[in-house]
Design a protein around this nucleic acid. Structure first.
Length: 227
DNA sequence: CACCAGGCAAGTA
DNA sequence: TACTTGCATGGT
């Protein structure tokens, strides 16, 4: 007969981590944006960019009444680029916004709801085909706009997990996401809240120069501590 | 002043 | 497949 392990269930530190993060910061009610198109634009604009700068660009788009799929699609690229300048990479990001509106316009009759009605895996593939939408941006749209249970892996996620030695540098995007899928129940609301809390933690404590003293996860560090 | 921020695509080997 | 580089602004 096979020997039974002393612990009845496999350890799931990411569950414990979630409880602590929620206790420390409370529900984050993400994404920080009102409409679907605002969330999508924000997801593209925040690529490798501080959110404070994205807010300036979003505010300008609102002032220009350009935060709609139609307006984003018809505004000349040069004009759009100037409006979103504070978010950085403005020429690239203007093209990326346009690439998205072109997808919806050409393949979905200009209707976001038709795009969002696609089945999850198909929707992800469609989004990834858009130039300027990679795994994180696609998953952000899937989770925060289409409300599908997918986990968003961003730079903060990697840094937090790396500090706790739950992943390695070389782990792929999907390997990191798979860690969460394996340990958490498959619920949109949970994935939503978890990612938002990781960003809160990341901004507060998990900087390049760490402030681990007040980190609610610090006792979850394995023997040897953070790198 | 240097470094950093909620990526991604295109080019090279 | 695995690296490298360009893209750009504003905050610390």
């Amino acid at each position: 007969m096979k020997e039974k392990k002393a612990r009845p269930t496999k350890r799931k530190p990411l569950n414990e981590a979630f409880d602590r993060l929620l206790e420390r910061w409370g529900p984050q009610h993400w994404w920080p944006g009102e409409t679907d198109i605002e969330i999508i634009a924000g997801a593209i604009l925040t690529q490798n960019t501080a959110w404070a700068n994205v807010e300036k660009a979003i505010r300008r788009l609102k002032e220009e009444k350009a935060l709609s799929l139609e307006a984003l699609h018809r505004t000349p690229l040069e004009t759009l680029a100037q409006w979103i300048r504070p978010a950085g990479y403005h020429n690239v990001k203007a093209r990326r916004l346009r690439a998205f509106t072109t997808l919806v316009t050409q393949a979905y009759e200009g209707r976001l709801d038709k795009l969002l009605a696609e089945e999850t895996d198909e929707l992800r593939r469609v989004l990834l085909r858009v130039n300027g939408i990679g795994p994180e941006t696609a998953d952000s749209i899937l989770l925060y706009v289409a409300r599908r249970p997918v986990f968003v892996v961003d730079a903060y996620t990697r840094r937090v997990l790396l500090r706790h030695r739950w992943i390695r540098e070389s782990d792929s995007y999907d390997e990191v996401a798979a860690l969460f899928r394996a340990q958490l129940s498959n619920e949109t609301a949970l994935f939503n809240e978890y990612h938002a809390l990781i960003v809160a933690l990341g901004k507060q404590h998990c900087r390049p120069t760490p402030q681990c003293g007040e980190c609610p996860l610090r006792e979850l560090l394995p023997p040897g501590g953070a790198a």
